[in-house]
Write a protein that binds this DNA or RNA. Structure first.
Lengths: 127, 127
DNA sequence: CCTGAGGTTGCATTTTTTTAGCAACGCTTT
DNA sequence: AAAGCGTTGCTAAAAAAATGCAACCTCAGG
């Protein structure tokens, strides 16, 4: 756990949104101005392999990371891309639904809600 | 509906996996050797806006497209990336679960299963 | 205190994926 | 035939992510 790695983790925990590598880079750079983007990518990758953080593989967007390594769901704003946590318990039984419906061996699922965040709901109402 | 657009759509329908733009490009090129990758991207975008096809926004991976524009779920192999359809009915009531749990206005959800395809299940057993 | 093996960094570069700019082309319609 | 309009192919480049490598710590063993 190097200085860089620690700062990346700290900054990620500090942000309760779920930023992409580029935003993390910008923030970490304020504290370690000479850090490189490559290092940020490498460490985010390493941290998620270690299980300290989670690589959210949300639809279509650039990779995002979550400082909470526990499984939980997310909701994404279709307009501005903001991603929030959804505090409901994971629905394990969803996976039972597809037992006979696929030839795959199921190991998990990802559920992502889409919608509009409060700000964009307003803007959409009066565009 | 130009020749190019038609061929792209035909080739996409012909493949029952859910290829990315690059694979579609390779296939279409066999029939229209001088087509450009940009045209493929443009037309996939246009076709999905028209609702003829669907832009699968699966986690983390490059964009993939589905010739079936109806909503349905997918399962992705964690090892090789293969994506299959999951023939179960969309669970509309999932969205009710989070009524009070978020400040977002929910308009939909995406559910993606992860697992191993038959080939990779075997390979994983004896790696 | 010195040494060196191992992991990590910063930098530069490359690869991969996607989008944009633009002249030329092919259809209609007149 | 000429004008209008969308579409194409090409080139370029932006964006996102990964990689190669020399230099740099750090810490155990001497």
């Amino acid at each position: 756990m190097t200085q860089q790695r620690k700062v990346i983790l700290e900054e990620l925990k500090k942000i309760n949104s779920h930023p992409g590598a580029d935003e993390i880079y910008e923030r970490v750079r304020k504290r370690l101005p000479q850090i490189s983007l490559g290092t940020v990518y490498r460490n985010l990758e390493i941290l998620s392999e270690l299980g300290e953080i989670q690589n959210l593989e949300l639809g279509g967007t650039p990779k995002r990371f979550d400082s909470n390594p526990k499984k939980h769901y997310h909701v994404r704003c279709s307009r501005c891309g903001r991603v929030d946590d959804v505090p409901i318990a994971p629905l394990k039984k969803i996976e039972n639904e597809i037992c006979g419906a696929t030839v795959f061996t199921i190991i998990g699922h990802r559920l992502e809600f889409t919608g509009f965040c409060p700000e964009c709901s307003e803007k959409n109402a009066f565009p």
